[in-house]
Every structure is written in structure tokens, then in C-alpha cells.
Design a protein around this nucleic acid. Structure first.
Lengths: 208, 208
DNA sequence: TTTTCTTTGTCAATCCTTTGACAATGTTGA
DNA sequence: TCAACATTGTCAAAGGATTGACAAAGAAAA
């Protein structure tokens, strides 16, 4: 696709554009100028135009951007034009919460199964999704495509499980365990540290 | 405390320092140089020294930093030296997952209660925490201190609930609803958009 | 003690990101 | 069809963040 290096800052903003545009489309908005969008999103119009232009000119002088088209383009940039098969490791509250996200499927993100070490969790089902024992993981990986594994397990278990997944071809990791996962360079790990974000809040409560 | 403006970038890094240092302390590490820490955290030593110096000199030339002391100092910067009373609005899987975080209490973060609109959820209990009906919220707020409200409710309900909370004195909001909450300037809102982070992962899977 | 070594705190240079400005271009209305 | 208008795409300037370098300060060793 594009060849210039896109900065992390820009990539982080794309899903946010997506959210606002999808919201607008739901309200029946057909076209939008960078100026209007910037007012709603509380960013500069210049930044929006600059960001979008990194990927090609999606707008039209004198007109603005077509909302539907822009959603399509940004979705394609984000890889949401192709479907992703996802499994969740750890069927605790967090794992079940993520597996239950209703909107993922609209974006081609399909949760296929959950895995858990505790027998009590392997009996029931979440949203009709199968919950398997961890023992069944290697075999599952041999027989099923998995693009992304969501890790909602304790940090003590995370690295070993991630390595098993990696060795069986999984390259996308959405990690909620409390450590920064380190895997070979061809694996893509998104570490989510929820408590880090809470601490930013306590910082601001104290200082502002 | 300090008077210079601290950039958002720095504040985001503080909890990460905290994590690595706590981990080290658990392994019995007593002192650490910015050089060693930088190697483990994969950042530059210069950045660590620069960050810490914004808040005062916690190190000692020729020695480095005392791990215990540094944890204490960063904790204080982050406001973890004072206790925070927290309630969770929405007792679904996500709300229960956050209410169940074991490590919060070590940091002075006390989850006091959950609230939910659905009767089925108000009967049971999470970790011994009371789960109240949403109707009971205004009265609870009149009788109890609440520093932070965690919102794990649908975006359609989020703004109205947040305004009720704000009007009853709550100023900290950890928002998981799929919208950017807008409240008066003296409220501190930390918006967490989990699906945004997943999309960064799909971006990288597609492009790298 | 004294010397050598280590490592911080800090400054300036570099690098990256954001913003403002405007020519180019297509839209809209007459 | 043409003139007036709106808005993009893009460039350069301004603003922030990160890095490298080194003097100052204390630790460790002799």
C-alpha cells in the first residue's frame, strides 16, 4: 500500500476518526468538511487533512469528504476490509467482556472461541461461543486459522502461552496481562495496561 | 507540588516506570542506574533521567536510584499516596472484571460498590462488594465520598449518568463507554477505547 | 585519605509533530 | 457557461519531545 513511514501518532488517531464518522453516518450525515469534523473532534482541521493525505486524497476541493467513502477508506487502512479470526485466552470476566463486544463483527473481527484453564469456566458458554480447556489449544491452532489472540490471563502465565501461540503461527497479540510481552519481531503485540490509564487519572486529580 | 507544566507524554510513562520498578523490588533489586533500567524498558537512559528530573532529583551521582525510594516518589507523583474511593457503574463482565482487580488496593484505590440497572445483577455480589440498583445512586452519593466513577455502561446511557455523578460532586471519570465524554473543565475524564487499540493491531498486521 | 570510577542532572542539538497559510481545484448558483 | 465560493492538498514555520554530551557530584577502591 503506501510506502512512507506513518507515525504512531497518526495510527492512533485513525480509529477515533472512524468512531466519529460512523456516528455521523448513523445520523445521516453524507458529507463533512475537515473544518466541521475538527470542531466536533476538538482537533485542528489542518491535522485531519494532513493525516488523511498521508494515505491519499480522499477529499474534494470545495466539497469536503464523503462520509461513507471516508469510513470505507479508513477501514481499509486499518485492515478492517479483511476479516480477522480471534481467540480469547482466559475466560474470566475480562475475557468474557471482550468476547461479548457486539460491534466487533461489523468490523470483520470474529471471536471464534475462548480458552480457560479452570474447568468451571470450560463448561458454560459465552454468547454461544465455545469455551475450551487450555489443553485443547495446540490442536485447535493446528486446525483453525487464528489471526489474533487476546490474552486475559495472569502475567505469570502470559509469556509461556504467548510463545505457544507464536510457535503455532499466531502473529497478533492483544495483551491484557500486566507485563510488556516480548516476542520475535514478526509478532505484533498491543499491550493494554488498564491500570496505567487509571493512574493518569489519579495524577490529574492530584495536580490539576 | 511542582509548577512547571508536565507534558502528557511524561505522565503516560510514569505508570510504566512504576511497573518495572515494582517488579524489580519484588526480585530484590535495591538500586538501579538509569542505564540498566533503560535497557530493560527499551527506552533511552536520557529519557528516564529527564523524566525523573522534572519532579526533582531522586538519584545520586555515582550510585543511581534507590528502587524503594523511587517507587515511593513516583507513587506520590501519581497521587497513589492518598486513597481513592471508587464506584463502578455497570456490573456487567467489564465492570466486574475491573472491580475484581486485586492490585488496586495496594495502591490506595478502593472499589466501594457497583451499580447496575438490571435487577438480576443487583442480587449477587462481586468479591464481597455490594451491587446496588441505579436508583440508589443519588442517595449513595449524598452519603459517601466518591473520587472516581468507572463507567462500563452503553454509550446511550453514559452522558446522563456522568452528569448525575458530576452534579453530586464526582470529579474523576474512568470511561469505557464508546464515546468521548464531555464534562465541565473541573472534571477529569480518562476515556478508554479498547477497540481503538485493537484496530491499531489490525493496522500493523496489514502493513508490516 | 586520596584517586579513580560511576552516574546523575542538565543543556543544547536534533528530530518529530502540529499548526497556519495559501495556491490549486472543484462546487454551486445565477 | 461563467463567476463567486468553499475547501482541499501541501509547504514551510513553529512548537514539542527526545537524544547525546559532559560537567558536577558523590561512591568505591586503593
Amino acid at each position: 500500500m503506501e510506502n512512507r513511514a506513518i507515525s504512531q501518532a497518526v495510527i492512533k488517531r485513525l480509529p477515533r476518526y472512524m468512531r466519529y464518522l460512523t456516528e455521523m453516518r448513523a445520523r445521516g450525515v453524507v458529507r463533512i468538511s475537515s473544518q466541521e469534523l475538527s470542531e466536533q473532534m476538538k482537533v485542528t482541521a489542518s491535522q485531519i487533512r494532513q493525516d488523511l493525505n498521508l494515505f491519499g486524497g480522499f477529499g474534494q476541493q470545495g466539497y469536503g469528504y464523503n462520509v461513507e467513502n471516508l469510513i470505507h477508506e479508513i477501514g481499509s487502512i486499518l485492515g478492517l476490509d479483511q476479516s480477522h479470526d480471534i481467540i480469547v485466552i482466559g475466560a474470566g470476566n475480562l475475557g468474557r467482556a471482550l468476547a461479548g463486544y457486539a460491534n466487533f463483527e461489523n468490523r470483520g473481527l470474529y471471536i471464534r472461541a475462548l480458552f480457560d484453564i479452570a474447568p468451571e469456566n470450560t463448561v458454560s458458554q459465552v454468547r454461544g461461543l465455545p469455551v475450551y480447556s487450555m489443553d485443547a489449544l495446540p490442536e485447535y491452532l493446528r486446525n483453525n486459522r487464528v489471526d489474533i489472540a487476546v490474552l486475559t490471563i495472569p502475567k505469570t502465565a502470559a509469556l509461556a502461552v504467548a510463545q505457544t501461540l507464536y510457535n503455532n503461527g499466531v502473529r497478533g497479540f492483544w495483551n491484557f496481562a500486566h507485563l510488556d510481552l516480548e516476542l520475535p519481531a514478526d509478532a505484533y503485540v498491543e499491550n493494554v495496561h488498564l491500570s496505567d490509564s487509571l493512574m493518569q487519572l489519579t495524577y490529574r486529580l492530584k495536580h490539576q
